[in-house]
């Protein structure tokens, strides 16, 4: 299948960029170690590993947008996409080819995050598998944001929007670093209206075994993921058939 061949190329491009591995895996792990060390000295309930690991898993996934967006934007910027658009690949082949390699990366990233959490004292239990499943809509959301950003922006802009703005937004507004109730007001209202805190809450509910609490939050993430993915596919198809690529 052509889309599989294209996906294989994209997987190699992504995995062979050391910055992707450093940011996608290294950065969240360093933060986990750092915050766990703080927790060991000054206990803060928010930084207990069962709460911290789901938050950092979502934070790690936010880098997926940066990886995918940068890859697509670079392809557009270097004429490689011109070569590809002149080939008999359909729009579906392109979209599948760009998104397929990111799913295993996202799952692997979350597994590494929870694996590190086990070493830091998190109980090894089946709930973590459920948490990995609850993170799938968040993975789709960040992949879709990357596809959208890569279709619209150049690689430097993707670096700014996805690498700086999105990762910070998804961190601050996720309730991972501080309790959103402590800030309250408009900040909390905005955070509640966005999907990041809901992704973290759903994964935390799964880890704690409180399955009934997963879905109210997960619906938010699924809704955003579906909407942004649909928008990304529309924009990518338009770009593909337009003259200004």
């Amino acid at each position: 299948m052509k889309s599989l061949a294209f996906a294989a190329r994209n997987r190699k491009e992504l995995l062979r960029d050391p910055l992707n591995l450093a940011f996608g895996l290294g950065f969240p792990l360093v933060l986990m170690l750092l915050l766990s060390a703080i927790q060991a000295n000054i206990p803060v309930s928010l930084f207990e590993i069962e709460k911290l690991a789901p938050g950092l898993a979502v934070f790690g996934l936010s880098f997926i947008s940066l990886f995918s967006g940068t890859l697509i934007a670079k392809d557009r910027g270097t004429s490689f996409l011109m070569r590809l658009f002149a080939s008999p690949l359909s729009a579906s082949d392109f979209i599948l080819g760009y998104t397929m390699p990111l799913f295993p990366m996202a799952i692997l990233q979350s597994m590494v995050c929870f694996g590190a959490a086990f070493f830091l004292g998190m109980a090894v239990k089946v709930n973590v598998l459920i948490a990995l499943i609850t993170l799938i809509p968040a993975a789709v959301l960040f992949i879709a944001i990357g596809l959208l950003a890569g279709s619209l922006l150049n690689d430097k802009q993707v670096g700014g929007i996805c690498g700086a703005l999105l990762t910070n937004l998804s961190a601050w507004l996720s309730g991972t670093w501080f309790d959103l109730n402590l800030v309250g007001g408009a900040f909390k209202t905005v955070a509640d209206a966005l999907p990041f805190v809901h992704a973290v809450n759903a994964a935390r509910a799964a880890v704690s075994g409180n399955y009934a609490a997963i879905f109210p939050d997960l619906w938010w993430v699924i809704g955003y993921a579906t909407g942004i993915l649909a928008l990304a596919v529309i924009v990518f198809r338009r770009k593909m058939s337009s003259d200004a690529k």
């Binding site: 190699k12 491009e13 270097t78 004429s79 011109m82 080939s87």
Partner: peptide
């Protein structure tokens, strides 16, 4: 039936 070598170098850099 066709193929193109674009004006700018169009190769996959990490491959």
């Amino acid at each position: 039936k066709i193929n193109i070598s674009p004006q700018e170098t169009a190769v996959a850099p990490n491959l």
